[in-house]
Design a protein around this nucleic acid. Structure first.
Lengths: 148, 148
DNA sequence: TTAATTGCAAATGGTTTGCATCCCC
DNA sequence: GGGGATGCAAACCATTTGCAATTAA
């Protein structure tokens, strides 16, 4: 998903130098519709510039996260995965069979969380709702296998 | 939290040998009111039997999780943390300052999740709701520091 | 110019594993 | 007795870091 501002502006606004590795990494990120991890991002980035090291990937990813430009997720056990933080907050379905991620949002759940946190004497800093799922047709397939 | 059955029964039911390390590890787990990670558990376990290795801790933890006796969580980045899986499902508040975990449960949120998943054509396998929080008095303290 | 950024390789931290030994059932 | 369980140490994987060289501002 593209960033709201262009890369040069984004860097300037956050006091980051517009270096060539940075440009490529942010470009690739802005074109990613999924939630790549560092290794996958490195794979994509090195297609444009084979010289970019994995250390730079990690450093850039962490930097952009600290600046609030990226969001970092850890689904299940796997490696950290990233996405642009520049849209409305949302939660995730993770397909347990394929690892595919689908986004969703529920104002009602958000509201309930606020309510419950308050009741417990907490202020919410952030939250993460991950629903691990199976597509319904897979259920049917499974049921058939089980002999129904 | 104590297990529902005693340790010997639990092992027998799942086809696990009742070994001496296992006994100690499960005993310590059943006495833990928190969500210890492998290192912390090892620390506690070796007080009773200094010979038990960290490898056995990991192996036992994974085994018990596969058997459905334990639940495994990964809060934020940190190491995997475990708790008995033998109570009603619940979600977690994680204090961002101390790492302390508080459990809570909302039938309404559970219901909404079902509803939303269904609407997206998914069947829920499992889910994880983690709310990262700050105690409200800490907010006040912070506000004071900021000069209000 | 000069401080930020990078590449490289080594280090880290949590976790897993191969293997020889051990010990429950 | 025999296969599961254990301890040890080495291996692993994702990630971080020290350092010297590079480069944007």
């Amino acid at each position: 998903m593209p960033f709201t501002k262009d890369i040069a502006t984004l860097c300037k606004d956050h006091g980051l130098r517009l270096t060539s590795p940075r440009k490529v990494i942010m470009q690739v990120l802005s074109e990613s519709e999924d939630h790549p991890d560092a290794i996958e991002l490195h794979r994509r980035v090195t297609k444009a510039d084979p010289g970019i090291s994995i250390a730079t990937i990690y450093r850039t990813l962490n930097l952009l996260q600290e600046k609030g430009i990226l969001e970092k997720h850890t689904f299940g056990d796997g490696p950290a995965r990233f996405e642009s933080a520049e849209h409305e907050h949302h939660d995730h379905f993770i397909d347990t069979e394929t690892g595919d991620v689908t986004e969703f949002r529920s104002d009602e759940i958000e509201r309930l969380q606020q309510e419950i946190a308050l009741k417990h004497g907490f202020e919410i800093v952030s939250h993460k709702l991950e629903i691990y799922v199976r597509p319904l047709n897979a259920v049917r397939r499974q049921a058939k296998r089980d002999g129904s």
